[in-house]
Design a protein around this nucleic acid. Structure first.
Lengths: 240, 240
DNA sequence: TCTTGACTATCACGTAACGTGATAGAATAT
DNA sequence: ATATTCTATCACGTTACGTGATAGTCAAGA
């Protein structure tokens, strides 16, 4: 069977078959003219390749799975199943994120994601060190249902309206600084460990990002600017 | 803020920031020495970039979303949500496939996937031509619950045990050819339109693939070989 | 002032799985 | 004999960076 016939039969492109030959995944015999001639065994092998690919195995893994009779295919499938389920969980979280954005706007999501990479890095390192089960407690970030979101929204509003009544005070005032500290604890409790560095970054966001500004200033004009200054003071006092 | 400070703050690598500058996604000012100096606005922009990236938007799409005030962000999010949901469905189907393999072995999955690409291609073309709703009937391939699988397994066994009683007859015998035809209809009913081309390919699989062979020969030794020959005869008679 | 170390810069190649031409020889149909 | 179809082999493009290599810049200590 020549290349086009096979490509039509199984529904892959000729280039794909060329490529599989190139990487040694499926290397048929060649005739005198150099044309690839696919045998029944090649068809069988290709069908297996395509099925494993359908399951989103990488081509290198497929090669190992097919060529090494030593590997435990069932185990590989189970592991792969696990990976797929985690992927699914992640996608669920993403959809959830989008829903939250559509309901509540961008700002909370930005806070949530501000140092998600850091969080993930720490988590990965922690898993390496202590195993997966020990790190389950970090999961709090992932799933927040609607009622939780509403309570978060409410607490934010409370904090902002209290802060609004302080706006004639200097940002160094104790009552203001206590509120900033509350806000910091609040983030730590609900999202991730809010270090001074992160808090500083968030404070800078609050003045430069119009979406934050608009949301915070709904409570009182100029509040976002005031809040940002209060955070800056809070951080400066505590940095060295 | 210089590059390392920012990279630590938000948890991305320096290379990533270099790259974002390179593609014009995030291009900070530079000082006399050529060092990148990130402003508060840059931090804000980066946080937005990272959030959209977290939602699996591509960098080019992120660029458009941020830079073009004309695009409807809400609409983009809704579309993206849709894409994620489809991804989710697909992963579910994959997990389902793996479960089926673990329960029933590879052979049915291979039959199912044999020309899945073809199936998808036809489906895509059909959707282009007739719209999505008209193609819903093709969906039968996707979801098969446990009871359905069991009945399929049973029918396969029935067919094979009947065929086993015919093994002393010539493959050209009417009773044998009727069984092949039944098998073909069976695939068409349960999986996809089993053309002669595909049937031929399957027949070749049955002799060359040891997993098929083992499964079919459970009923009677040599049955897979016999079945394969019967299919070949069936196809030859009908091809021109 | 010199050196050391930390930080920065710009190439430039590698990754996965092909897509997409370009160019040229081989097989088949008319 | 010629036109068409099929085949082959380069070889560059894609995404979002990772990973060196090499070299210039800055602040601090001897």
């Amino acid at each position: 069977m020549k290349i086009k016939e096979l490509s039509k039969l199984v529904g892959v492109t000729i280039r794909t078959l060329h490529y599989y030959d190139e990487i040694g995944l499926l290397s048929p015999q060649k005739d005198d003219a150099g044309y690839r001639i696919y045998s029944e065994n090649d068809i069988k092998r290709l069908s297996e390749i395509l099925m494993l690919k359908e399951l989103e195995f990488s081509l290198t893994k497929i090669k190992v799975l097919i060529d090494e009779p030593l590997v435990d295919k069932e185990k590989a499938l189970l592991i792969h199943r696990d990976i797929l389920e985690k992927k699914n969980e992640r996608i669920y979280a993403l959809i959830d994120s989008i829903d939250n954005i559509l309901r509540n706007g961008f700002e909370i999501e930005i806070i949530k994601n501000f140092n998600k990479n850091d969080y993930k890095r720490y988590k990965d390192e922690a898993i390496k060190k202590y195993g997966d089960s020990a790190v389950q407690s970090y999961k709090k970030t992932d799933k927040l249902d609607t009622t939780k979101w509403n309570s978060i929204q409410d607490e934010m509003k409370d904090l902002f309206s209290t802060l609004a009544t302080y706006m004639d005070k200097d940002v160094s005032d104790d009552s203001v600084q206590i509120l900033v500290n509350d806000w910091r604890n609040y983030i730590t409790d609900n999202f991730y460990d809010c270090t001074l560095e992160i808090l500083k970054g968030l404070g800078e966001l609050y003045i430069s990002d119009k979406r934050f500004e608009a949301n915070i200033d709904k409570t009182k004009i100029g509040l976002s600017n005031y809040f940002s200054k209060a955070i800056k003071y809070y951080c400066n006092v505590r940095t060295k």
